[in-house]
Write a protein that binds this DNA or RNA. Structure first.
Length: 420
RNA sequence: GAGCUCGUAGCUCAGUUGGUUAGAGCGCUAGGUUGUGGCCCUAGAGGCCGUGGGUUCAAAUCCCAUCGGGCUCCCCA
């Protein structure tokens, strides 16, 4: 087919009318479950200062080094947000949300942007929902975050997933571990992949995440961080696991789970699904006790998750889960002649005031075409109006499903419709 | 950034070894029923065969390039 003159940007997709109802349904579920957990919604701008994202997420991460959309205007450096943890923390610090007292329990829904090559489950503009608890280092916060995340999937009916869990330690534990890891890898470094060699000095833990075949043998027997956690991190991790057990949330310990953003400390987790193919991460998150301070706030512990909404949609399709009902309208006015059209136009508001949805033909089409349209719109009732009806003051109310018709005054029609 | 693969109507796809005006189903519009949807029948609209170039008497079909989609790697949601 010939390409239209204007198209959306690569990897940025329209959510069309046939799709939007399920997005709304998903958003409603997220709002409801977040409310049950007593989280409050936060909405931040689509664009942030580039420096915030670079500092927050880490200069050397893939997201920052090759996936951000950034541009300059005057003296300002704009970046389309690639994730929302750093912006939420920025907002927390900027508006002194700690002064509201207690720990802040925030959640969000919205579009994110990463300049990647699109494929299934990966777009340049995509949507995430997520939640953050800022101001608590209690393992209860970690577990509540995970529970909220899981609850959304459970509510939708997606249960076929794996929760991977790890602790990446606090800075002290991590330094000790990195040293041990470097000592272990150094003798074989020249045999490992280029990517891994690059990561060796700056971020050796990411090597554990490598999928390169030549690295696997070395990774398999590498020292694991759990052996290097100090007392405090060890205890925190133990409690997280214990609370998850108490809640009956299954998880798999994955000592090689290292997530893509530099800010994570201690708890790290990822939710993967076998229904997604290559991009199998449904959601991920963890604790980031250093980020608030990194961004300029007081040292403040925090934990959160982010979940991909397109991937959730894909999982729903694979599992034949329908999030939204078929479209429908309560009343469709079918008219014959100008007087009838005018009657319909002026009586639409009365039906709508009664709390029902109502529509009519906008194209002056034949009765048959109007009936067909009513059917296509999945109308529950058609009100048929012609000269006879107007003369009598009684109109044909057709139940489209039952194919039954009554001749009633408009008042009777309204009271009958109000009852169903 | 790298690899594989595909690009014919709004959608899903046919199109034989290159050979007259490029097809089907669904959808859309209208008619069969001058006041009645879903089923059925009929007709119509809708395609520079992704784009550009080349080979040829002749290209949707062969070659090259390019753009776009899908999948994979990397990484992530």
């Amino acid at each position: 087919m010939a390409k239209p003159k204007y198209t959306s940007h690569v990897g940025m997709v329209d959510i069309l009318p046939d799709e939007s109802p399920k997005w709304r349904a998903l958003e409603e579920i997220i709002h409801e479950e977040a409310a049950k957990f007593n989280f409050e919604e936060i909405r931040t701008p689509i664009m942030e200062q580039t420096e915030l994202i670079v500092r927050g997420i880490g200069q050397l991460t893939d997201i920052v080094s090759k996936e951000i959309f950034a541009f300059e205007k005057g003296d300002s450096h704009y970046v389309l947000r690639p994730e929302l943890t750093a912006p939420v923390v920025r907002s927390y610090v900027e508006h002194h949300l700690d002064q509201r007292g207690g720990s802040q329990k925030l959640y969000y829904i919205g579009p994110m942007f990463r300049a990647e090559k699109p494929q299934k489950g990966r777009q340049r503009q995509f949507h995430q929902f997520g939640a953050e608890v800022i101001g608590s280092d209690d393992p209860v916060a970690d577990v509540e975050i995970i529970a909220l995340m899981m609850r959304v999937y459970e509510r939708i009916g997606i249960t076929n997933f794996e929760l991977k869990l790890n602790s990446v330690g606090d800075p002290e534990s991590r330094e000790a571990y990195k040293e041990a890891l470097r000592d272990y890898l150094r003798p074989n470094l020249d045999k490992m992949s280029d990517v891994s060699q690059e990561r060796f000095e700056k971020n050796p833990m990411r090597i554990l995440d490598s999928k390169e075949e030549q690295d696997q043998a070395f990774i398999e027997d590498a020292p694991v961080i759990s052996d290097y956690l100090n007392e405090e991190s060890q205890q925190h991790f133990t409690l997280v696991k214990e609370y998850l057990d108490d809640l009956g949330i299954d998880y798999t310990l994955d000592p090689h789970l290292v997530r893509g953003m530099d800010y994570y400390t201690r708890t790290a987790f990822e939710l993967t699904s076998p229904d997604l193919g290559s991009q199998d991460a449904l959601a991920g998150g963890g604790r980031y006790d250093l980020l608030v301070e990194e961004i300029g706030g007081q040292p403040t512990p925090a934990v959160g998750f982010a979940a991909g909404m397109e991937r959730l949609m894909i999982a729903c399709e694979e599992l034949d889960i329908s999030l939204a009902d078929e479209k429908s309208v309560d009343v469709y006015f079918v008219t014959l002649g100008d007087a009838a059209r005018k009657f319909a136009l002026t009586h639409l508001p009365k039906v709508r005031e009664a709390g029902l949805s109502a529509t009519m033909d906008y194209k002056g089409r034949s009765m048959k075409a109007q009936m067909k349209d009513a059917d296509r719109e999945n109308a529950r009732y058609a009100i048929i109006i012609g000269d006879n009806e107007l003369a009598e003051g009684k109109y044909s109310l057709r139940n489209m499903k039952a194919s039954e018709e009554d001749s009633l005054t408009f008042e009777k029609i309204l009271s009958k419709l109000a009852g169903v």
